[in-house]
Design a protein around this nucleic acid. Structure first.
Length: 536
DNA sequence: GATAAGGAGAACG
DNA sequence: CGTTCTCCTTATC
């Protein structure tokens, strides 16, 4: 169950832990003998128009007369609600402001979360981006002690009880606990027409059509949710969420859904958008911190992101991973001709592992954001001062962005890499816990020699052909066409913002003595030559 | 003015 | 300690 503090942080981060979805109709109508002895069970209603959260969404009269199948064991939390808890339940009008599509047997991965999740595998695997514009928060302050509890709904202030039937209170409990057994007994006696409103909620399956969902049996979620096949539907849904958000952002920014196709300017737009979306701390001089185009950006490791932007680098990287995964999934779906594979019961596509990786990254984001609560203030001005200089990249650089992966020597990679990110993602082991990362495992090490870096650029003529190119490959002669850009790339790689061509060329000249490079026969400006072994 | 060349010392890992 | 960064002067295009 979301505590109030969790709500608040959810708002700031604009996404929340994936909630497992199932059809509450199944819960209430199915004559199952299964017993779900789950504490922390989060009872929420799924509804298209009735979007509440947790217990709060149950109108009191409905909640207390809800048909409770005795085959289901409701959480102890629900059985221990006090009368004053109920007084804090929201009115139906306010309830409808709350957004909750999902039912969760788990708590969000907040720092305040202390209870063990009944389904750890869910907690590990399910995250999803939440579109923040859809969130309307209850006016509740954070939990004082930060520990989620049934009493956390105390903080949902200004809510009034519409109706309250004192008869449902336990006749034996001195503290006015709700006696769930009493409810169970009485529910058996109550005719169904007493619950028409609730039944209307539950029988409303428009949300299923809206989200193209199919009911997922509870059995898949409790007690056995440890296998890949069990979680694929939810991952698929998460991927669908991600793709929807990606598409929305693409439309807003007018950028390609494929990060590999972004120009330098579009990278800046995307970073700016992501910073604002997640209310992150803006990156000063972002264009110098991330001067790459989309393809180069995609090649940066998590470590690279963190080094360049210690506060938000990991978040940006993980978000980029999600974009890549979403694009790969779209590609896969279009290739396979299956454009309708996002139902809950559909089998996972080949993108599932990739998305899972991205989801796990998102989990680390979540944890990081919650841990870095000092950076997650309520201050909406956090993005003030974010300035994007779109003039730092040359037009030639824009035209140089080609969506291929090219990290190998020679660089004349064909356009056969239809899904470059797939290769990339599988090549680089994804690190799920950013705080535990070791250095040196990134795809691009900053411990690189200049001559190696230059050869790296030379190996990507599609990418950097306008900045540096071979004049005579066999002799190792190359020319720097855009000294500013090459220097900027070098400075970025070495985390030397003050790097310029003057310094870079000085370093190149040091190679003369070392026999790594030599002066060309006819001295030409910006033309250098590798010595033999180094040009290979 | 931009670049090349190179000396010298500092910084860094 | 090796490599690179940084600053500098002088020369060349």
């Amino acid at each position: 169950m979301f505590s109030s503090s969790a709500f608040k942080e959810t708002s700031q981060s604009s996404f929340y832990q994936q909630q497992t979805i199932y059809d509450l109709n199944t819960l209430l109508s199915e004559s199952s003998t299964a017993t779900y002895g789950v504490d922390n069970f989060d009872l929420s209603l799924l509804g298209n128009d009735y979007q509440f959260d947790s217990y709060q969404q149950l109108k009191l009269d409905d909640a207390l007369s809800i048909e409770i199948d005795s085959n289901y064991q409701y959480p102890s939390q629900l059985t221990q609600l006090k009368q004053e808890d109920l007084n804090d339940w929201p009115s139906s009008q306010q309830q409808q402001q709350y957004y909750s599509q999902l039912i969760s047997p788990i708590s969000p991965a907040t720092t305040t979360y202390s209870s063990p999740s009944p389904c750890p595998s869910i907690e590990q695997h399910f995250t999803v981006i939440k579109q923040e514009q859809q969130i309307v928060l209850p006016p509740s302050p954070p939990d004082s002690n930060g520990v989620p509890s049934p009493q956390s709904i105390h903080h949902c202030e200004n809510f009034k009880v519409e109706q309250f039937d004192e008869s449902v209170l336990s006749p034996s409990a001195g503290e006015n606990f709700i006696d769930i057994n009493y409810l169970l007994d009485s529910s058996d006696k109550k005719p169904q027409q007493d619950h028409q409103v609730l039944r209307g909620f539950l029988q409303d399956t428009t949300f299923q059509r809206k989200h193209n969902l199919k009911p997922l049996p509870l059995e898949n979620l409790f007690g056995g949710l440890t296998q890949r096949g069990d979680i694929e539907p939810v991952i698929s849904l998460a991927l669908q969420h991600a793709k929807q958000e990606v598409q929305a952002t693409c439309n807003a920014l007018k950028i390609s859904p494929n990060p590999l196709e972004w120009t330098e300017q579009q990278v800046q737009l995307w970073i700016n958008s992501t910073v604002k979306q997640f209310k992150l701390e803006a990156i000063p001089k972002c264009e110098t911190i991330f001067p790459e185009n989309g393809q180069m950006l995609a090649m940066l490791s998590d470590e690279d992101f963190i080094r360049r932007a210690p506060q938000i680098g990991s978040i940006l990287h993980a978000q980029l991973e999600i974009w890549k995964a979403a694009y790969v999934d779209v590609s896969n779906n279009s290739n396979s001709g299956d454009n309708n594979s996002t139902t809950l019961t559909s089998s996972g596509s080949s993108a599932v592992p990739t998305m899972n990786s991205a989801s796990l990254s998102q989990t680390s984001i979540w944890n990081q954001m919650l841990n870095d609560d000092s950076d997650m203030s309520d201050d909406d001005d956090s993005d003030v001062g974010m300035e994007i200089d779109l003039q730092t990249s040359s037009p030639a650089a824009v035209s140089a962005s080609v969506a291929t992966v090219d990290g190998c020597e020679g660089g004349e990679s064909s356009a056969s890499s239809a899904q470059p990110t797939t290769t990339k993602t599988t090549k680089t082991p994804k690190k799920h816990h950013t705080h535990l990362q070791k250095k040196g495992s990134g795809a691009q090490s900053s411990h690189i020699h200049l001559w190696q870096f230059l050869k790296e650029l030379l190996a990507s003529p599609q990418l950097h052909g306008t900045a540096i190119r071979w004049l005579d490959r066999s002799k190792g002669i190359f020319k720097i066409e855009d000294s500013v850009r090459v220097a900027r790339l070098w400075g970025t790689r070495k985390n030397r913002p003050a790097m310029n061509y003057d310094k870079l060329s000085r370093s190149i000249r040091q190679y003369y003595k070392k026999g790594i490079m030599k002066k060309t026969e006819r001295s030409q400006r910006l033309v250098y030559q590798f010595c033999h072994p180094y040009s290979l």
